[in-house]
Write a protein that binds this DNA or RNA. Structure first.
Length: 352
DNA sequence: AAACTTTGACCGGGT
DNA sequence: TACCCGGTCAAAGTT
């Protein structure tokens, strides 16, 4: 439907450090906000969760790269690896410019807001089509995707007081209208349903909040915005297309996943993940097989971690894992990668 | 009065 | 076919 919409992304951010310092784009402050924004965009229509179409690229279990243990998130963010992957250019396949940077920015803000906290459970998870990463204004993208932003439960405290969000103008800069809330099976947290209030926009999101502290534990985006982000007078509207839940609401804990994020583009069609934390590899591996909804799996993993750790703040070395499923992956470094081998490495449940 | 949230009911897909 | 369950609707309540 509507095509012709053009979107001009804000100046690119070159590193997470920059983001953390608030240097880039300061438009995305994590000010008491709430939820985040889309990352993956499918278009129009009435997307259905399970109707996601497979990516055009061949899929196969994948590849991932890991940041050496011991590297702090900040370092990680500032690392050449990320920088390279961050320098996202127009999509090799479509020429579209992904908006993921915004997502990163959001994540960075979240990080910044909790950088004194434990990063170990930070997990960034994506589940979408690479094309999806192209974000906001890509009505031509027809596939249906969903993005999941999962907030780790184990990070103990929220600097910002966690909690609640005020109106429907959420942190991602879009206007959302809540149209339902439900207790879903398998989760003690109520799930809220939101629609983008823009008249022609079909973007939706589901947000789960912890009953205990009101913090968001999971966000799932569905659909795509077919309009530019409305101007906000309330705060920096620019959260870009970003996505993520506000630091405040997330309680400074975030694990995001979804399509739009960068890795997103980097990512791969359909299923990719970036996680921080030791157990993430497991998470990633679980993700790569099995049909269980990603969000649910994540949630369960999170629960397990929490319970097993006892303290709720397991000590782990930060690690970034980007997992993809296609044989030919287009990572966010803009290059196409062809898988030429796979092997199970001792001590690592995930094939390399 | 308008906009938004809440919440029980309804719908439809999956099993 | 019946049941389960997630998603949506829409009336009522709230801000």
């Amino acid at each position: 439907m509507d095509h012709g919409f053009t979107f001009t992304p804000p100046p690119f951010i070159t590193s997470f450090t920059e983001l953390l310092s608030g240097g880039a784009g300061g438009d995305m402050q994590a000010v008491g906000a709430d939820e985040s924004s889309p990352r993956v965009f499918s278009r129009g229509g009435v997307p259905k969760f399970k109707s996601a179409k497979p990516p055009s690229l061949p899929i196969s279990p994948s590849s991932y790269f890991a940041i050496p243990a011991g590297l702090s998130p900040a370092e990680l963010l500032d690392s050449p690896v990320l920088l390279s992957s961050y320098n996202i250019l127009a999509s090799p396949t479509t020429g579209a410019i992904p908006c993921q940077r915004y997502d990163w920015k959001v994540s960075a803000d979240l990080f910044a807001s909790q950088k004194d906290a434990d990063f170990s459970d930070f997990s960034f998870h994506t589940n979408s089509d690479a094309a999806a990463a192209q974000a906001t204004s890509f009505p031509s993208f027809k596939e249906q995707e969903q993005q999941v932003v999962e907030v780790s439960k184990s990070i103990a405290s929220s600097k910002n007081g966690g909690g609640h969000n005020g109106g429907n103008k959420l942190e991602d800069g879009y206007n959302w209208r809540k149209y339902g809330q439900k207790q879903v099976k398998g989760s003690e947290n109520p799930r809220s349903y939101y629609k983008c209030t823009y008249h022609t926009c079909s973007m939706k999101k589901k947000v789960e909040r912890s009953l205990a502290d009101g913090r968001i534990t999971q966000i799932v985006y569905k659909g795509a915005h077919n309009h530019p982000k409305p101007l906000s007078t309330r705060r920096n509207a620019s959260s870009g297309c970003a996505a993520a839940a506000s630091a405040e609401d997330l309680g400074c804990v975030l694990s995001a996943s979804g399509a739009g994020q960068d890795q997103y583009s980097a990512a791969t069609p359909e299923n990719s993940s970036v996680t921080f934390g030791d157990d993430d590899a497991d998470i990633a591996s679980h993700r790569s097989h099995g049909d269980e909804p990603e969000a649910k799996r994540l949630k369960e993993d999170g629960d397990n971690e929490g319970s097993s750790g006892g303290s709720g703040k397991p000590v782990r070395e930060p690690r970034l894992v980007v997992q993809t499923l296609s044989d030919i992956d287009i990572l966010d470094d803009g290059f196409r990668w062809r898988k030429y081998g796979q092997k199970v490495v001792k001590g690592n449940p995930n094939p390399r």
